[in-house]
Design a protein around this nucleic acid. Sequence first.
DNA 1: CTGGGGAGGGGGCCC
DNA 2: GGGGCCCCCTCCCCA
Length: 487
Amino acid sequence: MDILSEMRTKGSSQTPGEPGQPHPSRVSALSADISSSHQSRLLQQLDEQRRQELFCDCSVLVEGRVFKAHRNVLFASSGYFRMLLSQGAQDCGQPVSASFEVFSQDTFTVILDFMYSGKLDLTSTNVIEVMSAASYLQMTDVIGYCKSFIKSSLDISAKEEDDHYLSLSENASRSGGVREPQDYSSSNAGAMLKSPSSSQPASWHIYNSPEVDYHKETKSEPEPAKRGSSPSEQPSRRMGRRALQIADPELHASPGGYQFSLGPEGGAGETGKKKDWSIQPAATRSSSELKGAPSRPKAEKADELYNTLPTIVGVVGLFNRDECPTMRFKCPFCTHTVKRKADLKRHLRCHTGERPYPCEACSKRFTRLEHLRSHFQTIHQARKLICRKCKRQVTELSGRVVCEGTRRYRLCNECLLESGCDSVVFDSSDPAGGVMGPYFGEEEGDKGWPMTDEDDLAEDSGADLIIQEVEDSDEELEQKETKPVVS
DNA sequence: CTGGGGAGGGGGCCC
DNA sequence: GGGGCCCCCTCCCCA
């Protein structure tokens, strides 16, 4: 039945009390039906075009197989493609390609079919990989469906009493951990998702349901942190504001219920290989864990995290027709991509909250050695030859280093006189302008210094204003205690 | 309340 | 791959 005949049919059954005018609720229902029908037809048309490779402007290479698709559909369906295609927006007219090695052709077929039909063909054998791919592609609705599928397929509560942890391997799923797939199709996905019965078939065709909003309980995905992007698009830069430090790769996509974690041996890209998946009830995680409380040592350091996620992190190539690939490494926690793996490793620290470089002088911790160095030079060594008061340039002769707690800064002689020399103390052991010493030695730098909570109070601890003689001799300073001494 | 400057943090990229 | 530099941005403090 086409839209017009639908309209005719529905228009003929008017409410008796309002001759000539359809009842408002009927109008509303009618327009909803038309809209729904139109969307469905449109999607069907696009799907047909895709299958006939008509107007396809994207090629997705998965394990050697090329999937043709429309960038509009990919863009609209996947946060990952949204990011990827946004980056190539300047080449709007050029066909673009992306290659994946992190999931199988079959998995991408399921994903692509979902994009074009709203139907998710899940089975007990593919659900984990589909979910992994969906996580990679940032398709939170698909993740949600997978979770619902798994939840309904497992009798979690019974095992929860034993150890709160469930192991789910593909072998287990095949041997009965998840019911054997039975082809099943329904257009009422909402009902299926809301109340999966114990007799729920393991194979679903889940229809995309706009009512299910899996974003609601999660922190919104940060957009790629690009130069010039708005603050809201970038990952929060201050620890205090990093409301949700994602220590778990899938945490951001797990709105309650169960958290999925990928074991060290389990790479999503290792199609067909045994994976070490575990499902952990969210309730067993403390809120501090979920929020990435800074008081608790991070279980996942960037390095470890990086090592455990080689295939998830993966390599993605976005290249154009001249077959000149631009290799990018994608952050598993956000949409950010980098050119180098080392940069990704560095970037991961902003998610893990790891700060391996503490300042021994004031206990502040830094994500990078260079930040620590900069901090130390600025705050504790007064290397800037600028009078803090009048902002004029000073030399070793025209200015002196003022020591205030662990802070040091320079004052020109004039400002010094204005401050009053009587109230200050001179000390010849000032390392201002000197060397870093063991603070920044390559061996010491990333080991971390002994830190205590009390040390946090060290900075600006109310020490009297002290002026120390500027002694910039590097050789001398190297032999001295490098930690600034407040006398 | 607002603007300026300092400090910190993150990305790109070179060595 | 690590270190380091440069640049840009945001936040915070202070006048």
